[in-house]
């Protein structure tokens, strides 16, 4: 070969061509290496394996242009990411608007309990400055301590990895309903916790006031001289006062098993049941005289009124207040 080249091109030119050929082969080798290296870098970014020479030989590599193919894919990935970012930005603004508009305090904690986000209502509700929450744990900001307080909602969520609801949490004399929800990653690990606080102080105070008023009325009825009873639609007793128990001879424990027809004299029973059913249907009855039947089977003639309370159109309870006829008759005339 060399002798043929020497004859064709002369000895000097032949050596120069061999050298050029060697140089070109080296250059092509480096270029192929470069393409393989860069292609593999891009493939690794896509989460796949490097390309092997036996999969794609050098000529096919140049013809396929893998860098161009993957680069074009990356252009589309970036365009898609840009579109996703716009959607995320819109969603973020939507969430911020929701956080600002709701009447409950909301904050998001990371898995170390450090406050990440909170809404304005949170600051107002707990009378805090933004600096009071920034970089602090929920314990430090709300419970004034460095460790989990007893019955800590965050701690329970981290333990159970489930939503937790606390119906009445008290802080500085104010009552809050607390709902906590874990935010998990795809492996099920809790990464964040969202806590929502509703100020229920007014509701708790109203309920307490209603309970006090109810107790007051119960005390009034309990100590009244008249016989007072409250009967459910099924005929069971919801409430009877002391005068009722004393006149009819039943103890408080015995009343649980009694029905209204057990204390009505047999000859009065049909008429009373008629009245009772009419009441449950909404009738308003005039004052009535009834003969009650005591535990000792003694008859007790009483006179009084019975009314019925309804909720959503359904009878809830009948309320009766009676005075014994004997006591009425024994009153001196003229009084």
């Amino acid at each position: 070969m060399k002798s043929i080249m020497n004859r064709l091109f002369g000895e000097y030119d032949s050596e120069r061509l061999v050298e050029e050929n060697r140089s070109l082969r080296e250059m092509r080798f480096r270029q192929i290496e470069y393409i393989r290296k860069k292609t593999n870098q891009l493939l690794l970014l896509l989460g796949t394996l490097p390309i092997r020479p036996e999969e794609l030989d050098d000529d096919s590599l140049i013809e396929t242009d893998p860098i161009g193919v993957v680069a074009e894919a990356f252009v589309q990935i970036l365009e898609h990411e840009k579109s996703l970012n716009e959607q995320l930005r819109a969603a973020h603004e939507e969430i911020q608007a929701i956080l600002a508009s709701v009447g409950i305090g909301i904050m998001v904690l990371n898995r170390d309990m450090v406050i990440q986000i909170h809404n304005q209502r949170m600051l107002e509700m707990f009378e805090l400055d933004p600096a009071d929450l920034s970089g602090k744990t929920c314990c430090q900001a709300l419970c004034d301590c460095d460790r989990f307080p007893p019955d800590c909602t965050f701690e329970r969520i981290m333990e159970t990895r489930r939503p937790v609801h606390l119906s009445d949490w008290v802080r500085n004399g104010k009552h809050f309903e607390v709902s906590g929800v874990p935010v998990k990653n795809r492996f099920g690990d809790v990464m964040q916790v969202v806590l929502a606080y509703t100020d229920i102080t007014r509701r708790v105070e109203t309920e307490q006031s209603l309970r006090n008023r109810e107790q007051m009325y119960l005390d009034v009825f309990e100590n009244a001289a008249d016989i007072v009873q409250c009967v459910a639609p099924d005929g069971s007793f919801l409430f009877v006062n002391r005068a009722w128990r004393e006149n009819l001879g039943y103890s408080a424990d015995e009343i649980a098993g009694l029905k209204i027809w057990n204390i009505i004299a047999p000859e009065n029973r049909a008429q009373c049941m008629e009245h009772f059913n009419a009441l449950l249907k909404g009738a308003q009855l005039p004052a009535m005289e009834i003969v009650f039947f005591s535990k000792e089977c003694k008859e007790l003639m009483v006179k009084g009124h019975v009314t019925c309370s309804f909720a959503n159109g359904k009878p809830m309870a009948s309320f009766g207040m009676f005075r014994t006829m004997h006591a009425e008759k024994s009153l001196p005339s003229g009084k």
Partner: peptide, 19 residues
């Protein structure tokens, strides 16, 4: 074909028909 050759071939087809 095996991966990543399949991925490169698939991407080439997707790129060519993206619109």
């Amino acid at each position: 074909q095996i991966c990543p050759s399949t991925l490169i071939s698939a991407l080439r087809e997707i790129n060519a028909r993206k619109d």
